[in-house]
Amino acid sequence: MAAVRIRIDLAYDGTDFHGWATQPGLRTVQGELQAALATALRLPETWVTVAGRTDTGVHARGQVIHLDVEDEVVIESAGRAKEPPLATLVRRLNGMLPADLRIHRAIEAPAGFDARFSAIWRRYAYRVADQPALVDPLRRHEVLPWQRPLDLSRMNAAATDLLGLHDFGSFCKARDGATTIREVQQLVWERDEAGVAVARVIADAFCHGMVRSLVGCLLEIGDGRKEVAWAEQILAEARRTSSVHAAAARGLTLEEVGYPPDEALAQRAEQTRGRRVLAE
């Protein structure tokens, strides 16, 4: 039987999930999704590859996964439905999944596509309400209330020192054998139409806890507790320090994952699998 790789785009409210990755006895996004896929496809079990794992409490509007399955399984699972088999799969999954996890689309992935390794960037947003009038109870799961006013000009000045290819070990939780070299392509703070402070963070990839640590560092600069130069000083240490406090998970959302043109997907995946080093 011929195998097909399916790309699935999804979104979730991370509040009641213990992060992305499956964990025994805990409710996770991957666990819920794989169970629903197994039921919809009439398989004993399924396994998916994700573009980027999210921590407990972190949300996603533009998460991407891929799933390898035999073509006949997809067709047979659709039964007598008149719509295309992958459209049937989306409809059935959304009928099974809880309200805090939604499937946006499922398509046959182009040749060479890998949800994780083919990605060229991930875009996150972090939202902060730094005035009492901005704290909206209806957005309490996605916007962090902050007790001190933030000076976004100071935060953006500090953020410029964090752009580019660096060892971000100071802002990551160490994992054995994993590199902490990343390229931050954009890190900027702006206010939305309501006045909420929003960080837009784009990098080729992120190591564990990196975005929340970057935000935590910049929040201390923005409310005046640290000087603008502090961010660059922390970066230069290239190892985790207790002086940097990660911002709370609830303000963070994975907004989008970017991929190259179809003809470059396989090459990008091969390149990403290589271990990164900084030039001397």
Results as ranks from 00 to 15, higher is better:
Ala2Gln: 10
Val4Gln: 13
Leu10Asp: 00
Asp13Glu: 06
Asp13Gln: 07
Gly19Arg: 01
Ala21Thr: 10
Gln23Tyr: 14
Gly25Val: 12
Gly25Cys: 07
Thr28Pro: 12
Val29Leu: 08
Val29His: 06
Gln30Arg: 11
Glu32Met: 14
Gln34His: 07
Ala35Leu: 10
Leu37Ser: 04
Thr39Cys: 00
Thr39Trp: 00
Ala40Glu: 12
Arg42Pro: 01
Leu43Ile: 08
Pro44Leu: 12
Glu45Trp: 05
Trp47Glu: 13
Arg53Asp: 14
Ala60Trp: 03
Val64Met: 04
His66Asn: 15
Val73Ile: 15
Ala81Tyr: 02
Pro84Met: 06
Pro85Thr: 07
Leu86Pro: 04
Ala87Tyr: 06
Asn94Asp: 15
Gly95Ala: 15
Leu97Pro: 04
Leu101Arg: 01
Leu101Thr: 02
Arg105His: 14
Ala111Asn: 04
Ala111Ile: 03
Ala111Glu: 14
Gly112Gln: 02
Asp114Glu: 13
Ser118Leu: 06
Ile120Asp: 06
Arg123Ala: 11
Tyr124Gln: 08
Ala125Cys: 10
Tyr126Gln: 10
Gln131Ala: 11
Gln131Val: 03
Pro132Ala: 03
Leu134Thr: 11
His141Thr: 13
Pro145Gly: 11
Arg148Ala: 14
Leu150Asn: 03
Asp151Val: 02
Arg154Ser: 05
Arg154Cys: 07
Arg154Ala: 08
Ala157Gln: 15
Ala157Val: 07
Asp161Asn: 07
Asp161Met: 04
Leu162Thr: 00
Leu162Gln: 02
Leu165Asn: 02
Leu165Glu: 04
His166Asp: 08
Asp167Ala: 05
Thr179Arg: 09
Thr179Ala: 02
Arg182Leu: 00
Arg182Thr: 03
Gln186Thr: 08
Gln186Pro: 01
Gln186Phe: 05
Val188Arg: 14
Arg191Asn: 08
Arg200Thr: 14
Val201Asp: 00
Ile202Asp: 02
Ala205Arg: 09
Cys207Met: 09
His208Arg: 15
Gly209Arg: 05
Val211Gln: 00
Gly216Cys: 11
Leu218Asn: 02
Ile221Gln: 00
Arg225Leu: 09
Glu227Asp: 13
Ala229Cys: 01
Ala231Trp: 04
Ile234Leu: 13
Ala236Gly: 08
Glu237Thr: 14
Glu237Tyr: 09
Arg240Gly: 00
Thr241Asn: 15
Thr241Gln: 15
Ser242Arg: 15
Ala248Glu: 00
Ala248Ile: 01
Ala249Met: 00
Ala249Arg: 02
Arg250Glu: 02
Leu254Ile: 00
Pro260Tyr: 05
Ala269Met: 13
Gln271Asn: 11
Arg273Asp: 07
Arg275Lys: 15
Glu280Pro: 05
Glu280Met: 06
